[in-house]
């Protein structure tokens, strides 16, 4: 036993010259009475009820959360509903896509793509033919309305050097 242990022993002996009071009989009576009253008041709680109750509460919370998420989602998408309906009307039966293309050429391409749901040799060949037709028309329609180079001139293109220039 080292010196520290001896000193601790001596200190413990000193501390043991006092003692902690034990609970009195009056306190025992008071506390056991209160505990028995609580025993009679609190209903019998079966152990298996605890997980069942937790499960029910969790399910209810999940239903509330999903309902709230649906409401928020509906509200957020409602402003897109009207424009999607208008686009559908314009396309004439073409199902609305998440992103409706506005270019008439692309719109025609999309409508062709949507119609070609049947996969057999004849329908596929006719679909390819129609696609080819549309694609052939595309450069012609582009050539019919060529961009005006004068109007579309960039401000960055320098004018040719004149006689008054320093160079």
């Amino acid at each position: 036993m080292n010196d520290k242990d001896t000193r601790n022993k001596r200190l413990e002996e000193l501390l043991r010259k006092a003692r902690l009071p034990e609970p009195s009989p009056q306190l025992q009576e008071r506390i056991t009475d209160a505990a028995k009253r609580a025993w009679n008041q609190s209903p019998l709680e079966l152990p298996w009820l605890i997980p069942v109750r937790r499960l029910v509460v969790s399910a209810a919370a999940a239903v509330v959360l999903i309902g709230l998420a649906n409401i928020i989602s509906d509200r957020a998408l409602s402003r897109w509903g009207a424009s999607a309906y208008a686009a559908d009307q314009q396309l004439g039966g073409v199902e609305p896509l998440p992103e409706i293309p506005y270019n008439p050429f692309v719109r025609r391409l999309v409508s062709l793509g949507i119609r070609s749901s049947v996969i057999d040799a004849s329908s596929l060949s006719s679909h390819v033919e129609s696609l080819k037709r549309v694609l052939d028309e595309a450069p012609q329609s582009g050539a019919a309305n060529p961009p005006n180079p004068d109007n579309g001139r960039s401000g960055l293109i320098l004018s040719p050097p004149s006689a008054n220039s320093y160079s």
């Binding site: 609970p23 506390i31 209160a34 505990a35 609580a38 025993w39 152990p47 605890i50």
Partner: peptide, 14 residues
């Protein structure tokens, strides 16, 4: 101590 005993009694099944 009294509060502890009452609490223990209420949670007696645990």
């Amino acid at each position: 101590l009294q509060t502890v005993f009452v609490r223990i009694v209420r949670k007696r099944h645990r």
